[in-house]
Design a protein around this nucleic acid. Structure first.
Length: 180
DNA sequence: GGGACGATGTAT
DNA sequence: TACATCGTCCCT
């Protein structure tokens, strides 16, 4: 399984969000692989996007979003769940909201939901800032997506009418593993 | 040093 | 539809 180069993420954030659909997210810990096929993403466009963490300023937490594209931005939400993002640079990133289990998910391990997929794949803040083109955490080629659906992003009403309504959520319309 | 607030998930 | 649970950020 060959990692995608960092340049994969050095493009327009919406393009990266769509292109990530169908790709594989791979976590190698010890000798074991956990692999998920990405089926749902959300684009967070940068400091001007009021739903994006970087819109609250450049802080220690959001610093990685201003760094090199292709790195992971992982944060804790609601004190219980971790969320993984692919940094595209300039304060922007793509949240991975759902994956379809491919390999290494234990019995009952699910990938449909940002908190679920990180739990099932064993991802947490120790992965924050890691480059996504090498072990332990990387992106790889996958099966192309036939039909891409889109909608408003989930849970961002606080960002106001304009930014909460923009259709920046993308998903594999044929997948059974998209979150609800 | 304190308090408000989530890019969620699960159970009721 | 309630609520668990805690890091981050901002205020004092």
């Amino acid at each position: 399984m060959k990692p995608l180069p960092l340049e994969f993420a050095a493009r327009d954030t919406v393009e990266v969000a769509k292109d990530l659909l169908g790709r594989l997210l791979v976590h190698r810990r010890d000798r074991r692989l956990t692999v998920g096929r990405i089926v749902e993403t959300e684009a967070y466009l940068g400091p001007h996007d009021l739903a994006c963490h970087s819109s609250k300023g450049r802080t220690r937490r959001t610093e990685v979003m201003f760094g090199e594209p292709g790195h992971a931005y992982v944060y804790l939400i609601y004190g219980m769940y971790h969320c993984v993002n692919v940094v595209t640079g300039g304060g922007a990133a793509v949240l991975i909201r759902a994956v379809e289990p491919v390999e290494g998910f234990g019995a009952g391990g699910r990938g449909d939901g940002p908190g679920r997929l990180t739990k099932a794949m064993g991802l947490d803040r120790t992965h924050d800032g890691l480059p996504l083109d090498r072990a332990p955490l990387f992106l790889a080629e996958g099966a192309a997506v036939r039909r891409i659906g889109s909608s408003a992003r989930i849970g961002v009403d606080y960002a106001g009418p304009v930014w909460s309504r923009r259709r920046l959520r993308f998903f594999d319309a044929t997948s059974e593993h998209v979150s609800r």
